[in-house]
Every structure is written in structure tokens, then in C-alpha cells.
Design a binder for these strands. Structure first.
Lengths: 216, 216, 216, 216
DNA sequence: TATGAATGAGGATTCATTCAT
DNA sequence: AATGAATGAATCCTCATTCAT
């Protein structure tokens, strides 16, 4: 089961909560995400965004001070609002399910994150693009991930360690494993090398389980 | 030991062999790599490149028809010349060493590729940047990797399969594992999460060995 | 009497009919005609045009894709619209007047064309400039002239031949005579050697009459 | 600028330069004439000329101070040398032949000038191009023609007037007739409308004779 | 002397941004 | 509010010209 709402859906929520964003502005954000993601930020012109959104070029500047602010508006909710929400949802959900078995927990994480990647591919691509060319943004993303993951991963790990179900891997090692798995899946999708998602989830979670579970 | 020469080194070689590239043009290429990699292609102006290279703006266009051709000149040798050479060197070397043990082979690959990533980080970052916003380039990279890896991986895998040292994993699975490992390391370096390279090599190769060796 | 409206006048009409051409763009066209004509196409910079038109340099490109398109916009109506209209007007007029005498017909043509040349000197100069350095343009002009002249000259010639008022000159010979007369007048204006236009018309038409009329 | 120096000054310069013009420089002049004439002055680059001439780009500047001076060098001899010589030759020849008949004189002039036009078409085209876009150059050409023609035409005209063989046309009218005939022929060649030159000479001279000779 | 690499001013063109309607 | 014409700074690129070799 995909626990993850698509970013677009969560986003829609976020946007409706912002009463000062008109339908027009929402369509601008949507157009900006699409074009920034596929062409890159610099290679996308504001008039192109306006055209894609079906509005006048001047209208882009009604809510967004400039092109940079539009980029921020496209990205900021991604992990200032949406991603955070998504992670919290995951945490709540995983905890609420009271995972008894490590295997189930690992599978749940992988499933959840892979669907997240699949559903939010354009936004993630755009984020990566920015990460590659913006030092400050890169740092912000890092600190965000660290804070988010730490908050919900540590208690669960502690639990499985205590129950002697998890091999003796450090927290850092664990982060790297999860991180590497996600990046690996993203890369495979990017390069068109990915199998159907269910198979990918199966393989990746099995791989992690083999590596992490004391049963192996 | 690291068999990999840094791209810069191999590049330097390639450049010296190209008698039609002046010192000025070499410095232009160097400046272009640096700036394209750190800022992105679109966000880098040719005059900025000229300034970084310490030449006049017009000189950028002496050997390179236009900005795009300069990008190609920065990237093309990366995997049309250098990377190919590097891969061949690895193949020669691994075969020549007549690896008896799978563990040694895995370790050698990981070591070799991790050093390659470390030494050529800017160029790889730039390549990734292009991959994210250029469909054709993405396809070229894919086909390149496929051709290169197939050529030197298949025989070795066959050998270890025959010797019953390698678990029953498909070629595709193997590729994904290696691919994922490399992307994972690149991502960690990108995010500043990487441990010292020797430790990373140790951990990643151990992980792969545990997953691939029949001994486990 | 001058039957010919000046190209500028006819042009103005054409422009007003084009609702998508703003006042700014009309002034750009006017400035372009003036400068292209006096300095040549290549020697005129777009910023010079903008300055002459009293607009920003970027505004030149609002309606005209590029400098070449601006040249086309300046020239195309000249003989794609206006000249054609002018020729048709002449044809209508000459036929409607039901010229009884060859002398009157010749005089009417010369008068009409000379006024046309006088009133559209800059545009014709520009056209000539392009003819000298653009093979394709030259061919287009030739085919245009041939089509236009044939359509309205042949019937009239036939009439006068039948009436035995016109000497036995071929159509080609006639074209050359008219052509040569017009070129001759243009050249004299260009070199500042022309007498007042009424005298020029008188002389040139008399010359043609002497050469063509059976009465001589 | 061409117009800065008088044609006379240019002529002197050119002459002295042309004595020590190497084969290389002659080929540069040839290339410049060819390219300027076919593409126009502005549209022709000096490196293109160098390539056409088979020399290094810097070599173009060895004898010619700049591109403008090269244009001058290409054009100046055209009418300070060739045309002048031609006119003088014509004068000598016509006088030496002691033309008894006006018809022969007219035929000789037409024949001479038409061949001149045919043989020097590229240079004339280039000259015309300059005339169209350079006010000063235009004026100089006019005064040159006037001076040249006056010198050798007036005596002959006087002769035929005295002999009562020439109709009562003014000198100005005569100039215009000759001028118009030449321009007409040039235009016809330019537009590809010219018949074989012998026929053109025949027709044009007959036309002039009919108009000028008292016998008609 | 001849070369052609290097220069940098200048030109075409784009595009983020503003503002009058 | 929405529009889109107008702006002009910035960018890519060319090319006349210079100069060290």
C-alpha cells in the first residue's frame, strides 16, 4: 500500500491553505515545476511559464517577486511543508502500526520512499538540480534530512536493537544504507533502468533485510 | 592501490596529444569545467569563463565553435576518451592480475570506481547536471555505460560463476548493485556525508561481498 | 497627373490594416527603411534603428523575429502588396481611360512609373542594394516584374498592334525599353543628374514615342 | 573612410603601392573584389578574403591599412586606372580613326562601353553598391564622370555639330542618353535579361543613332 | 616577411521585470 | 486584478585589428 500522498496532492492542500494564492497562481506554480524540472531553472523563461500556465507574463509577478522567488515557492513547500508532512505521516503511521518485525519495518520504509520518489519525480529532479549548483540549498537539504530522519528513525532503531532483531550497525551506517538505496532507485528511474516498482521494492527491501536482520 | 588516473591527469594527456589545442584553450577548458560544474551550464557566461581562464572573451571561441561545443569539449573526452580508457585500464588490470578470489575482485572494482568518483567529482557533477535536463545526453550516457560495462564485466562474472564463487545473481542485478553503490557514494560525497574514502571503500566492498559471495 | 500613391502612403494603409502592428512597430519600420536605405542593411545596427525610432532596442524584436525579418517586413509589402496594387491601379486606370492614342499610353506609363520612382526612392534603393548582394532576392524580383508586366502590358500592346499604331517591336524589346527607361531615370535621380520630373517625363516619353510610334 | 581622401589622392597612393605589390597582395585584391562584389563590403570578412586569397589573415594588413583601405584599393584603380585608361583609349582611338560618320562614332562608343561593362561587371557592381550607401563616394563618382566625359566628348560633339550631322541636342541631354544607355545595359546584365552583347550593341547604338542622327 | 593566435569592442538577440491601461 | 507592450541589461558571438614569433 502506498502510504504516500503524491506531492501534488499534498501541495494542493498546502496551496488551498494559502488564501492569497489564486487559481491563476496555482497554475503558475504547476507550470513552473513542470518546466523547471524538465529544462532546468535557467533554461526556462518566465514567459514560457506564463504560456504553460495560460496567463499573461505579467501575472507571474503578481504573487512572486521574481523568478528566483518562484523557484523558492516551487521548492520551499516541497520540504518545508510537504516533505515534512510526508515524513511525519510516515513516522506516525509506522509507529502506529507498532511494527513487530524488522522485515516489515524495512519493507514499509522502502515501499513508502519508493512510491514517494515515483510520485514526485519532477520535484525531486528539480531539487537535485538545485542541489548540484547551489551550495546553500545543498546545506539546507542536508540539515533538513538529518533533522527529519533522526526524529523518527532513532526510536524505532532503538526498539529493534533492544529486541536484538537488528544487526549491530551504527545509526550513520543505517542512514547511509537507506540514503544509498533511495538515491539508487532515483538514479535507476532517471536512467530508465528501473524494473516495475513492486519488484524494485521487493529487491531493495530484501537486500536491506539480508544486510540488517540478525536472522541472516 | 588506485589504478585510476584522475580525469584531469588523463585529460592533460589527451590535451597534449591534441596539438591544435593551445595553452590558452586548455585553460579555457579547465575554467569551463570548474564553472559549469559549480554553477551549471546555463548560469555560466562565456565572459566569466574567459575571466577565470585569464583570456579575452573572444579567445573562448577560437577552438570552440560556441558555448555548447565548449560543453561538449569538456564532457566528450570524459567518457568518449578518458573514461573509456579508464575502464579499459581497469579491465586489463583486473584480468592481468588474474583475480583468484571474488572478494579481491569486488574490492578492486569498488576501490577503482570510488577513486574515480573522488578524482573526477566536478566533471561527474556536470555530467549529472546535463543528464537531468538533456534527454539525448541521458541516452548517450546510458548506452555508453552499458557498452563499457558489458565488455569487461561479463567475462569475469562468467569465470566466478564457473568457479562457483559468485551467488546466483543475474547480470542485470549485478549492474544495478554496482550502479547503486557508485551513485550512493557520489551522493554521499555530494552531501558531504562521506567518511574517508578508504573506509567507504571498505564498507561498500564488504557490503557487496556479503551480498554476492557464496561464502556468506 | 500622378496616379501613383507613394509607397509610404500605400504602406501606411497596409499597416493600419494590420491591427497587430503598434505605433511603435510602425515607427520601427519607418526607421528601418530610412537607415537600411541610406546605409545599407549590414551597416545598420538594430540599436541604431531603435534609436531612430525612439524606442528601446528590445522593442525592435517585439513584432520582428530578427533583423532579417525586419528587412523582409520593410521590403515584402513593397512589391508583394503595394507595388502589385500600384501596377493593378495603373492597369485599371489605363484600360478605363480607353487610351485611343499610343502617345497617350506611353506618356501615362512613363509619368506613372517616374512618380513611383520619385516617391519610393528609399525603398527602391534598398531593394537594389539587396538585389546586388542576394541572388535569391534578385530572382524573386525578376519573376515578380515579369508576371506583373505581362499581365497588363500584353493586351494593350495587342490593341495598338492591331490598330497599326505601334511599330513592329517584340514584347521583349518593349520590356527592355521600358525597363531601361526606368533604370535610367532611377540612375539619374541617384546621381543627382535628373531635371525636374515633368521635364524628365516629357523627354523620356517623347523618346519612347519617337522610337515606338508608327507616325515617326 | 573612402570619402576622406580624394580619389586623386587615393589614385596616387594606389599607384605607388601597386608597383611593389607582391603576388600575395594581388591575390588579396582579387579575392577582395570577388567577395565584396558578390556579398557586399560589410558582409565580407577580412579572414574570408585571406582564405580566398590563400594567405594568412594578418597578411591582408601588410599593404592595406584596414578593411576600408582595401576597399579603396580595389575601387580606386577601377576608375583612376582602368576606366580612365579606357576613356583615354577610346578618345585616342576615336580621334585617330578620324571618324567621318556620326553613326560610326556612336557605334564605337556603345561597343566600347558595353564591353567595358561586361568585362568589369564585378567591379561595377561593387562600385554601385558603394554609391548606394555612401553619399560622398557618390558625389566623387559624379564629378569624375563629368570631368572625364567632358574632356573627350565635347570636341567630338562640336565637330559633328559643325558638320551638321548631329541633331540639336544639348550636351547635358547627350550625357543623359549615353548614361542611360549604359545603366540600362548594366541593369539588363544584372537581371539576366541581356541578349548576346553584339545584339545589345547593335540595338542600343541603332536606338541612339535614330535619336541623334540628322539623317533620321 | 608572413603568420595566426589573441584581443576586445560592437552587434544581434533574449528575457526578467515594470507599468500604464 | 490581469494584461502584455515596453524596457534595457546581459549574453552569445563575430570580426577587424594587433603583435609576438
Amino acid at each position: 500500500m502506498m502510504s504516500e500522498q503524491s506531492l501534488d496532492a499534498l501541495y494542493e492542500q498546502t496551496l488551498s491553505q494559502q488564501k492569497d494564492l489564486s487559481e491563476v497562481q496555482k497554475s503558475v506554480l504547476k507550470a513552473a515545476l513542470k518546466l523547471f524540472s524538465s529544462q532546468g531553472f535557467e533554461a526556462t523563461s518566465t514567459s514560457q511559464i506564463a504560456q504553460e500556465a495560460g496567463v499573461a507574463s505579467g501575472s507571474v509577478y503578481k504573487q512572486f517577486k521574481n523568478k528566483r522567488a518562484l523557484l523558492a515557492a516551487v521548492l520551499a513547500p516541497l520540504f518545508k511543508g510537504t516533505l515534512q508532512t510526508a515524513v511525519e505521516e510516515l513516522a506516525d503511521q509506522t509507529l502506529s502500526r507498532q511494527f513487530v518485525e524488522l522485515d516489515d519495518f524495512i519493507y514499509a520504509i522502502v515501499e513508502d520512499r519508493f512510491y514517494f520518489i515515483q510520485n514526485n519525480f519532477p520535484a525531486i529532479k528539480l531539487m537535485l538540480n538545485q542541489i548540484l549548483t547551489n551550495e546553500d540549498f545543498r546545506k539546507e537539504v542536508i540539515s533538513f534530512f538529518e533533522r527529519q530522519l533522526e526524529g523518527f528513525l532513532l526510536p524505532v532503531i532503538e526498539k529493534f536493537h533492544v529486541e536484538n532483531k537488528l544487526k549491530d550497525v551504527s545509526y550513520a551506517e543505517l542512514i547511509e544504507l537507506i540514503f544509498g538505496t533511495m538515491i539508487g532507485y532515483f538514479g535507476k528511474v532517471l536512467f530508465g533502468l528501473a524494473s516495475p516498482i513492486k519488484i524494485e521494492i521487493e529487491q531493495s527491501s530484501q537486500q536491506l533485510i539480508r544486510y540488517l536482520s540478525v536472522k541472516n
